[in-house]
């Protein structure tokens, strides 16, 4: 069964306003790592908001393991999909461990607080991402890359098998981008379904097994990165001339994308 099945979704913020999403359809399987590409303002975040049940007034259907999400509560959706937003500076400087435990919200009853077993669970999640030493650090005081990993740990504690990530590498330095992406790829190998938006075609080539290219609110390409992402598509969407060539990595050959040399 498809873990997530998006069928002909269209969305406009107001009745007379322009359609932000136009007849978007794609579906995911367990273990997929899907990169959603597209220029700024193309509707990637809006699509995520629909998938997470923040926006209810879309046309079409979104199925979660075969069940329509339109009738589900936030709690029911949270048990199946976890959202990893772009890491922003928090208003209150919580301890990292407290932030991770917030992922337990959908599992705890309304009036209760986390117990020792939940603390252990949160510690385990931090350890699995290699940041166990940060548990008592202030969430507002650690680096952007570490914050992103903390948010991933929080999503693991939530125990939802589908992860939606909004530009997980935005605002990260070169090293942190790859550290975060490698952890994400590891999660996909362990059976998570991951849908992330990115602006870097190379991340799609290196880590994703599928690319969904959005342009003008529509899906204009859907397939494996090596098949779909070519110079022509990138020129059409981003308006830049690039070369897409094979690259011999240590274990396999994959494509990479670099800007074409031009006369300055």
């Amino acid at each position: 069964m498809k873990t997530l099945d998006i069928q002909n979704v269209s969305f406009a913020y107001s009745k007379k306003g322009p359609q932000v999403l136009k007849d978007v359809s794609f579906s995911t399987d367990e273990g997929d790592l899907i990169a959603i590409l597209g220029p700024n303002g193309v509707g990637k975040s809006t699509l995520f908001k629909c998938m997470l049940g923040f926006m209810k007034k879309y046309e079409g259907r979104i199925l979660l393991n075969g069940d329509d999400i339109s009738g589900m509560s936030h709690k029911q959706i949270a048990k199946r999909i976890a959202y990893i937003p772009q890491s922003t500076h928090p208003v209150f400087n919580f301890e990292v461990l407290d932030v991770v435990m917030m992922g337990l919200t959908s599992q705890l009853s309304v009036m209760s607080s986390p117990k020792q077993e939940h603390i252990d669970e949160a510690r385990e999640a931090l350890a699995s991402l290699g940041i166990a030493h940060l548990e008592h650090a202030g969430y507002g005081e650690i680096s952007g890359g570490e914050r992103q990993l903390v948010l991933i740990a929080r999503a693991l504690v939530q125990k939802s098998k589908i992860l939606i990530m909004d530009e997980p590498t935005a605002n990260l330095d070169y090293g942190n981008q790859f550290r975060v992406m490698q952890r994400v790829a590891g999660l996909a190998k362990n059976g998570y379904t991951i849908i992330l938006s990115t602006h870097n075609p190379d991340h799609a080539f290196i880590y994703a097994n599928r690319v969904v290219m959005m342009y003008g609110g529509k899906v204009i390409a859907d397939g494996t990165p090596d098949e779909v992402l070519d110079a022509e598509l990138i020129r059409k969407v981003y308006g830049v001339e690039v070369m897409v060539n094979n690259f011999e990595n240590t274990c396999r050959t994959h494509k990479l994308c670099v800007p074409k040399d031009t006369e300055f």
């Binding site: 997470l52 709690k75 029911q76 959706i77 949270a78 959202y83 959908s106």
Partner: peptide
Amino acid sequence: TLGEDEAKSMGL
């Protein structure tokens, strides 16, 4: 305190 959308995504 993390904001409405994040709270919703965790089931609140």
